[in-house]
Computed example of a mutant assay.
Amino acid sequence: MRHIIHFFSYHLILSRQSIRTTRAAGFRLRVRPTVFHPRFFLSSEYFAKFLDGLDLSGKSVADIGTGSGILALAAARAGAAEVLALDINPHAALSALENAQANGFGDRVNVACMNLLAALPVRPLFDVILSSPPKHAGEPRDLADRGWHAGPQYRDVAALFKQASERLKPNGCLYVMVSSDSDLDLFGRLIDEAGFRARLAYERSFYIESMILYELRVR
């Protein structure tokens, strides 16, 4: 079943060649080719709606793997003073920039194309870090598939937790969304090795899996 879902998701959505416009979580979004589509893949919209319940007034926020920029926009809507939206996919970075400007957050949302947080200095920078990384292991077939597959043993996101712990301000937190289909034991080890303690913040079940959102704070 998973292979069938991925087959149709890849060929009908992920690998499309046209720019699409959609509405998700109250935003109007342009989604460029190879960019994770927030309307078809519901995890992003669930995460954005969770952020609506937070008070991020005056906070500095990073959104890692921003895709269309939906979480960065939601953080700005929740009051964040500055949001840095990051993605390794240049088409995603451009989509996030366009969507920040189109939705009235261009003054607070900045965008950069980089691999996780690797290009940022190792010092306290953010009050809150957000990430909804690829939910499945396995070698991605191309750039479009990197929104679905994170490489063997989650190679492409394994450094996320350590990098985040080094760049959070005191009392800062990382919100990360995974799936019931993810290797939760592996994620648990990565979280523990990075020195975080985890709390379940939100869970939403649909169809054949659940989206699980953890709040992580440095021990």
Rank of each mutant, 00 (worst) to 15 (best):
P121T: 12
D192P: 05
A92S: 00
F161D: 02
N110C: 10
S60F: 11
L42Y: 10
L86T: 02
I212E: 09
N115D: 14
F105K: 01
I70D: 00
G69A: 00
E203M: 04
V31S: 01
A118D: 11
V109Y: 00
I13D: 13
G53M: 11
G58Y: 11
H6F: 12
L168D: 09
L190Q: 02
L54Q: 05
H3P: 09
Y202D: 07
G188I: 03
F196D: 02
G26E: 12
R197C: 00
M114G: 15
R141T: 08
L86V: 03
D156G: 09
R28C: 13
E203Y: 00
A100D: 05
L168H: 08
P170D: 01
L213Y: 04
E209F: 04
A62S: 07
A74V: 02
A159M: 10
I191Q: 06
L190H: 04
V111L: 07
L86H: 09
F36S: 02
L216Q: 12
E82W: 14
A62G: 06
R204A: 08
A201R: 06
Y10E: 14
F36I: 02
F41H: 07
I208D: 14
A93C: 13
F7N: 14
S165I: 03
E166C: 01
V31Q: 03
L29K: 11
G106L: 03
L73H: 01
T21G: 13
D63A: 09
K169C: 09
P170V: 03
F196N: 00
Y175L: 08
P121L: 09
K59P: 08
E193L: 05
P38Y: 05
L216F: 05
I4E: 06
P33R: 11
A144L: 10
F41N: 10
H3D: 15
D183T: 01
R77V: 08
F196K: 06
D145V: 11
A81V: 10
R20E: 01
A85N: 13
V35H: 01
Q163K: 03
G104P: 07
D142T: 02
S60W: 10
K162E: 07
G58A: 06
R123L: 06
R197Q: 09
A118H: 14
Y175N: 08
D185F: 05
S44D: 15
Q101K: 15
Y207G: 14
Q17C: 14
D192C: 12
G188Q: 04
V122Y: 03
A74I: 04
F7L: 12
N115A: 14
R39M: 12
L160Y: 08
R123N: 12
F47A: 00
I208C: 06
A93E: 04
F105H: 02
G69N: 00
F27G: 03
Y10K: 11
A198S: 05
P124F: 02
G26N: 06
M211I: 05
F196Y: 10
V176D: 07
N171K: 15
V128S: 15
D63S: 07
N99H: 14
A112F: 15
G188Y: 04
